[in-house]
Every structure is written in C-alpha cells, then in structure tokens.
Amino acid sequence: KELVLALYDYQEKSPREVTMKKGDILTLLNSTNKDWWKVEVADRQGFVPAAYVKKL
C-alpha cells in the first residue's frame, strides 16, 4: 500500500474529510482526483487536499 506524508495540519470541514497533523503518515487509498486524495488515518477514511500531502 502507498503512504503519504502530511505536509501541513488540516482540519476537516465536512464528514467526508479527515483531520491530519503535519508529519502524520497516512495510507493513500485513491489519488485519481488531482485536488482531493482519499486517505486512511486512525481507522477513518476520508479526503484531504492533495497539495497538503506528499507521496513517500
């Protein structure tokens, strides 16, 4: 499975999103959308801005 690194803190703004902290390592589930990537963090799945994460 592919992992991404959170480059910035992100606070979810809708139930479809997830909160992450800078430095978090997240499991990447889907990166087909260039703006929003689906990730899993702490047993929750949701979207984060693609610009806020980097593939490892």
Rank of each mutant, 00 (worst) to 15 (best):
D35T: 12
D9K: 03
K21S: 10
I25Y: 06
A50M: 04
A51W: 09
S14W: 06
L29N: 03
P49F: 03
V53H: 01
K1G: 10
V39E: 00
L56Y: 09
V4C: 13
R44W: 05
Y10E: 00
K22Q: 10
R16D: 13
N30P: 04
V39G: 00
E2W: 11
S31R: 07
N33H: 11
D43P: 13
Y52I: 09
Q11D: 14
F47Q: 04
Y8W: 10
Y10W: 11
V4S: 03
Y52D: 05
L3H: 09
R44E: 05
L29A: 04
V41H: 15
V39L: 05
T27H: 10
V18W: 04
P15N: 11
V18T: 06
A50T: 06
L7A: 05
S31D: 15
V41I: 15
K34P: 14
D35Y: 15
V4T: 03
L7F: 04
S31L: 05
D24A: 08
K54W: 10
E12G: 15
K22W: 04
P49I: 03
V4G: 12
V53P: 02
G23S: 03
K1P: 13
Y52C: 14
A42L: 14
E12Y: 04
A6D: 00
S31Y: 08
R44K: 12
L28S: 02
V41K: 15
G46R: 02
E12K: 13
P15M: 11
D24N: 07
E2M: 13
K13C: 12
G23P: 00
K54Y: 10
D43K: 09
G46W: 04
A42D: 13
K1Q: 11
Y8K: 15
E40R: 09
A50E: 04
A50D: 02
V4W: 07
D43S: 11
F47T: 03
E40D: 07
Y52V: 08
E2L: 11
T27E: 12
D24F: 05
K13G: 08
K21P: 01
K21T: 09
A6C: 13
V41A: 15
L3S: 08
D35V: 13
A50H: 04
Y52R: 07
K55L: 14
R16N: 13
N33P: 05
L5Y: 10
D9V: 02
W36G: 01
A42K: 14
V4E: 00
I25S: 03
K21M: 10
K54P: 02
V53K: 01
R44L: 06
D24M: 14
E17K: 04
V39K: 00
L7V: 07
K55Y: 10
R16E: 14
V53L: 15
N30V: 10
K22E: 08
K38Y: 15
V4L: 10
R44T: 07
W37C: 04
D43A: 11
K55W: 08
E40M: 10
F47N: 04
K1Y: 14
W36S: 02
D35A: 11
K1H: 13
T32D: 15
V18F: 09
A42H: 15
L3M: 12
T19N: 07
A50W: 02
G46I: 05
N30W: 06
Q11F: 14
P15K: 11
L28T: 02
T32G: 10
L5N: 02
D9F: 04
T19S: 15
K21Y: 11
F47L: 09
R16A: 12
